[in-house]
Computed example of a mutant assay.
Amino acid sequence: MSNEGQHIDEKDELISLADRLRYLIGHRSTRAAAKAWQLSYSTLNNYITRGTEPSLSVAAKIAELEGVSMEWLAWGYRENVPVQTDENPAVYHVNRPEPAQNEPLLMAWMMVFNSLDTAEQEALLRLIHKEGIKGILRESEQRHSLAQAISQLDETQRHDFYTQALALAAELKSEKKK
């Protein structure tokens, strides 16, 4: 497969993952590249023609075998790393946006995420995947409303509430063990 017909924007950048895969395939056939990358032909063909995306482990394997960064393979970002697919490979660059207003949020998110242990990170990712951000925010709002309601109870009512809640939690825990 040749690099002809690739979608290149006004800055000579490969636009899609499929285009970057075609670029890496170079003058090989799709079958030859699939074999070199330890993929089935149909899987690689789906990445190129149907827009399906490889798993992280598959993308990492392709990037490693082809001598490109995961970042370039995924998004087209290049850190002056030459691609070793031709004698004179074309160099494609995608300019990263300047650090935007969301960079402090990204850094805060990474600090929080990195402060979690592996089990907590996995649980958070499962929760985000299952519930989505809106579900998490809705649950957070409900917890905030509950905390606010509890704070408005007098000391006796608050004590009774916690006593009943702990008894209910213990009952649920014992039922779960059965």
Rank of each mutant, 00 (worst) to 15 (best):
S2I: 07
N3D: 09
E4F: 04
G5I: 06
I8N: 14
I8K: 14
I8Q: 00
D9A: 05
E10I: 11
E10A: 10
I15S: 01
R20T: 04
L21F: 01
L21K: 05
R22L: 07
Y23N: 11
L24T: 13
L24W: 01
I25Q: 14
G26P: 11
R28T: 01
S29W: 09
T30H: 07
A33Q: 12
A33S: 15
A33D: 10
A34H: 13
L39V: 11
S42G: 09
N45L: 13
N46F: 13
I48R: 14
R50K: 15
P54S: 14
S57D: 13
V58M: 05
V58K: 08
V58A: 12
A59Y: 11
A60S: 14
K61I: 04
E64M: 05
E64H: 04
L65K: 15
S69T: 15
S69G: 12
M70R: 12
M70L: 12
W72E: 03
W72A: 06
L73H: 10
L73E: 02
Y77F: 09
R78F: 03
R78D: 09
E79V: 01
E79P: 01
V81M: 13
V83F: 00
V83G: 00
V83H: 07
Q84E: 05
N88G: 02
A90S: 05
H93S: 04
N95V: 10
P99Q: 09
P104R: 05
L106G: 09
A108T: 04
W109I: 15
M111P: 01
V112M: 03
S115C: 02
L116F: 04
D117T: 01
T118C: 02
A119C: 05
A119T: 02
Q121E: 00
A123D: 03
A123R: 06
L124Q: 02
L125S: 04
L125R: 07
I128V: 08
I128W: 10
H129A: 11
H129Y: 10
G135M: 02
L137G: 08
R138E: 06
S140A: 08
S140R: 04
E141A: 11
R143P: 00
S145N: 09
Q148P: 00
A149C: 09
S151V: 00
L153E: 00
H159F: 07
D160A: 07
A165H: 01
L166S: 06
A170D: 03
E171Y: 06
E171W: 08
K173N: 09
K176I: 10
K176Y: 12
